[in-house]
């Protein structure tokens, strides 16, 4: 069998029902979720807060038992130590043993994978270098900032040189520089042919990084596929055009093609209904001897898709209730 095509993560109709409160009210956190993560891809697991992302990831890591359905990592059922040995995991807003220094911390996690001695020490130095924490190698974690914790957290997830790296909200709570560093790191992992699955509610990051994404809402899968396909499917693109020195008459000529016209000083912002009108609008501007300042196509983003799906899901859920 071709190993390249074999899914690294395979989830089939996974369901988790929690019993909350004194009366054990049933809350379905993940509802019949099925998806696959393929070898070597960066897979984004998206959804708003409380959609069931963390619950799904915890089930994959053996922290929570599914109510029904199955999931496998490398073809082995979840919770199997042999599968866990090939996985690196960073939990959401990680909490670590704050009485340890970064080196002691990484050494401890190395031991849990059965790594010892000089090979482990070398690996620790490499990882501290990779996440840019060599300067704090002997500092206790209690003195770390959130960004620093996230970095040693990532180092911890890579200690066993895993084939699959699962990151739960790796970018949350980080400043723009920190987020860029995490993005770069994920890309570097992809270059070294690792499989990365990360959850996020920040769609921009996913759009920049992911080969494929899955979007879940209220525990259900609402979209899954290549980012380009998902965005392309629903591409209603608008174009923003900024022009100068345009008389009021010529604006009237342009009005049929536009959605919106905004006057800002001697500049005019025109939002064109779609890209097919660009040429006609440009011709009109040229005839009226106006100057074109900028022309910006607005591609439909994952964010738009996300909002549309959320809006589409809302009424259906209300009906169901």
């Amino acid at each position: 069998m071709d190993t390249a095509a074999q899914p690294v993560v395979e989830i089939q109709s996974l369901k988790k029902v929690f019993h909350v409160g004194f009366w054990g009210r049933r809350v379905t956190a993940v509802d019949g979720l099925s998806l696959e993560v393929l070898r070597g891809e960066v897979f984004g697991f998206l959804g708003p807060n409380g959609a069931g992302k963390t619950t799904t990831i915890k089930m994959l890591m053996g922290l929570i038992y599914p109510s029904s359905g199955t999931a496998t990592l490398f073809g082995q059922s979840i919770g199997d130590p042999a599968a866990k040995a090939k996985v690196g995991f960073l939990p959401e807003s990680p909490y670590f043993y704050d009485y340890l220094s970064s080196r002691e911390f990484l050494r401890f996690y190395g031991h849990l994978f059965g790594l010892w001695g000089t090979a482990l020490e070398r690996r620790i130095e490499e990882l501290l270098e990779l996440v840019g924490m060599t300067h704090a190698r002997d500092l206790q974690l209690r003195k770390f900032s959130k960004g620093m914790l996230q970095r040693v957290g990532i180092a911890q997830a890579l200690i066993n040189d895993p084939e699959l790296i699962i990151l739960d909200e790796p970018m949350s709570g980080l400043d723009p520089i920190g987020r860029k560093e995490v993005r770069d790191l994920i890309l570097r992992l992809k270059e070294s042919e690792k499989t990365v699955m990360f959850s996020s509610h920040i769609l921009h990051d996913a759009e920049l990084l992911c080969d494929r994404v899955a979007m879940i809402m209220k525990g259900k899968l609402v979209a899954c596929g290549l980012v380009s396909d998902l965005v392309g499917q629903n591409a209603t693109q608008s174009v923003e055009m900024v022009v100068e020195k345009l008389g009021p008459e010529s604006l009237e000529h342009l009005r049929p093609f536009t959605e919106k016209i905004l006057l800002q000083g001697n500049q005019t912002l025109l939002v064109l209904k779609d890209q097919h009108h660009v040429r006609q609008a440009l011709d009109l501007v040229r005839v009226a001897k106006g100057d074109l300042v900028s022309l910006t196509p607005h591609r439909s983003s994952l964010e738009d898709l996300f909002i549309r799906k959320a809006a589409g899901l809302e009424p259906r859920l209300q009906e169901a209730a």
């Binding site: 053996g62 922290l63 130590p81 042999a82 939990p91 990680p94 670590f96 996690y109 849990l112 059965g114």
Partner: peptide, 14 residues
């Protein structure tokens, strides 16, 4: 409570 257990149980540790 401190969620440190997440990183331990997710390792190959029974």
């Amino acid at each position: 409570e401190k969620k440190t257990i997440y990183t331990i149980i997710s390792k190959p540790v029974a």
